[in-house]
């Protein structure tokens, strides 16, 4: 089974990239693949916790629940430290279980683990 990296570069909801990418990550995990979700650039907004029923409020899937599912299925979720700082997001504002890493570590992780790299 290939190791898969799913890169999320968009915030949730404004475009479909985020939830579409997270669906792919979940489906890969359900088939037994190892998956790392990388939140980079505006994608780090996807790591923020505390969403209030997006389905009810704006008729879109709850990406926070998707991230929690991915973590529950033993997927890894990492967020770019520099992108978080730039956006004023503290680590205690993130969904529990997300790992904060420096860009250089994330590049190394992608090169080491990304047998298949899917950018959203």
């Amino acid at each position: 089974m290939p190791h898969v990296v799913v890169e999320i570069s968009h915030p949730p909801f404004g475009h479909e990239h985020t939830f579409a990418g997270l669906y792919v990550a979940t489906a890969c995990l359900s088939k037994g693949m190892d998956v790392i979700v990388v939140l980079r650039g505006d994608g780090v907004y996807t790591g923020m916790r505390g969403q209030v029923d997006p389905q009810k409020n704006i008729s879109l899937p709850a990406t926070e629940a998707q991230i929690e599912d991915i973590l529950e299925l033993d997927g890894t979720v990492v967020a770019d430290a520099g992108a978080l700082v730039m956006r004023g997001i503290e680590s205690d504002e993130l969904i529990e279980g997300i790992q904060v890493r420096e860009s250089s570590d994330i590049h190394a992780l992608i090169l080491k683990e990304g047998e298949k790299i899917i950018a959203f």
């Binding site: 570069s9 980079r40 650039g41 860009s103 250089s104 590049h107 190394a108 992608i110 090169l111």
Partner: peptide, 17 residues
């Protein structure tokens, strides 16, 4: 767009390795 910027970071990281 960030795509080209990302190219710089990851290609340098690859060369470093």
């Amino acid at each position: 767009d960030e795509g080209a910027e990302r190219m710089c970071g990851i290609s340098n990281a690859a060369r470093d390795r």
